[in-house]
Design a protein around this nucleic acid. Sequence first.
DNA 1: TCATATTAAATCGCACACGATCTAATCGCA
DNA 2: TGCGATTAGATCGTGTGCGATTTAATATGA
Lengths: 147, 147
Amino acid sequence: MTLKMTLDDQLCFSIYSASHAIARMYRPLLDPMGLTYPQYLVLLALWERDGRRVRELGADLLLDSNTLTPLLKRMQAADLVARTRNPEDERSVLVSLTEKGHALRAQAEDMAPCVAKAMGDDMEELAELRDRLHRLRARLDGADQPA
Amino acid sequence: MTLKMTLDDQLCFSIYSASHAIARMYRPLLDPMGLTYPQYLVLLALWERDGRRVRELGADLLLDSNTLTPLLKRMQAADLVARTRNPEDERSVLVSLTEKGHALRAQAEDMAPCVAKAMGDDMEELAELRDRLHRLRARLDGADQPA
DNA sequence: TCATATTAAATCGCACACGATCTAATCGCA
DNA sequence: TGCGATTAGATCGTGTGCGATTTAATATGA
């Protein structure tokens, strides 16, 4: 069994296009909250654990400061997060949720039925897909950085 | 079975991060060919069927002209494709492979072992994942555009 | 036939991603 | 103690994605 060199046969394209399709699906849901899709992912990470350093956020999201710094500055400008120098170590910056950032969580939870409807409501299938993708990413990251 | 509001539990994040991980994996392979990852996908589409209109390419890749036009212009500047007005309908532009664009196919095929190694060589698993993603994307696209 | 609607690309503006580089703070060790 | 190495963010440049608009060409119907 080999994958042919055609778009439809390539796993890489199925991930690429599914990823964009998901972002497109989320956009109209996030727009009313003034959020972009990556900003929503940052909030997911912060709702889980608040007051993180940029680097820790980046480890969760697999993003570096060159992406996160401008993104977080926009979120700061939108009053979603606060960025403060870490008194313990002035090199690092602590990112924490504002009232508004906290408050959006309830609204975000309301998206769930809509998201489930768009993706299909077979939660078993979606969880299975999530786990397979998780394993693939682990293999990809593990290959280059066996740390 | 529900997905919790945490990064790791969200299907959306597993796709997002896997998608970027794949692009990162391809980068060092494509760099020597002077290709970006989206440019490689365009070539995949053209190797399959050459001389397409921008709109047709966009239908395959799920991209609009606002993304494709600049991308194709860069590929034209790199002598990978030619862009010519369609004599049958001057509104449309035909995109066709140059010699160089054709020639890269052989080189691209040589990436396969490396890609398989990075993703894991369980082709059954990868094909299964591809099909599940394909079905998800079809559901997502079908929800908004039932055409 | 000719104005209007439709269609295909192109253009514009903004927000990611990311390689490469820079700056500032802390660490480590002679 | 003090200086080179390390570390954390920030900055810069390039290349996507995509909503919104514009331009040019073709189709359509009174």
